[in-house]
């Protein structure tokens, strides 16, 4: 299994900060599209993606146990 993490506005829109998904073998882009269509949330498109706490390109293949984070536009400082 894999853990998907949501933050800030995306977390509020989805209604939870964490979802479990069997994503091994999918690409990061496919996971992103799945979440976008499942929740009908175009704001997913504005997210950068991270795997195991590091930004990753969307052609990254997910492996068992990976943690996938949706990173909406950041606003620290």
């Amino acid at each position: 299994m894999n853990t998907l993490l949501f933050f800030a506005g995306l977390k509020e829109a989805i209604g939870t900060d964490e979802v479990r998904l069997a994503a091994a073998g999918m690409t990061l882009g496919e996971v992103k599209e799945k979440v976008r269509s499942e929740y009908s949330l175009d704001q997913v498109n504005n997210c950068m993606m991270a795997v195991n706490e590091e930004f990753a390109p969307e052609d990254t293949t997910i492996t068992e146990g990976d943690t996938i984070a949706f990173i909406p536009p950041v606003s620290g400082g």
Partner: peptide
Amino acid sequence: WIGDQKEVKPGVP
């Protein structure tokens, strides 16, 4: 929620 992120292309680091 505020987002100041300066991205070249959305979703692509």
